[in-house]
Amino acid sequence: MEFIFFIILSLIAVISALMVILQRNPIHSALSLIVTLGSIAGLFIVLKAFFLAFIQIIVYAGAVMILFIFVIMLLTLRKDEFGQEKRKFQRIFAIIFSAFFLIELFIITNYTFFGKTEKILFTPADFGTPQALGRLLFTDYLLPFEIASILLLIAMVGAIFLARREE
């Protein structure tokens, strides 16, 4: 059952990820990316990361992608700015490079993990729930949590400063 979910969700993720980079119109790319993020959230649920799956939907597929779509709409792109991919040689090298990268990853995975039977360690009943993760965030990882909040504040100030129109 879990395996069927994994296959379906990973197929959706890979196909929509390909759509992200192959669509000419950036709006279509953004919508495909929402589908990818949603299917990755489904994979998080399969991996028992329930809290992170919902955070993924709310923060990524919700807030971040809305921001992307807002910016695409604000920029009022003309038709000729959608495509115009010149430099054929660069594209060929990019395809070769990423193919090599993928093959390297396959080889590394083959050497280290593949074919070995993993025995799953004991997982507590509340694994991945908001309670368990929240307890960890507010005790052991309090300092990174606070630093992350300061980082968000700085990013907010920086974004407002950058996007401001100079008089």
């Binding site: 993720a13 990820a17 992200v20 980079i21 990818t36 594209r91 990019a94 395809i95 990423s98 990268f101």
Partner: peptide, 11 residues
């Protein structure tokens, strides 16, 4: 997925 991201970043 990462390789697709690299490819998109480059092309």
């Amino acid at each position: 997925l990462f390789s697709i991201g690299v490819l998109g970043f480059l092309i």
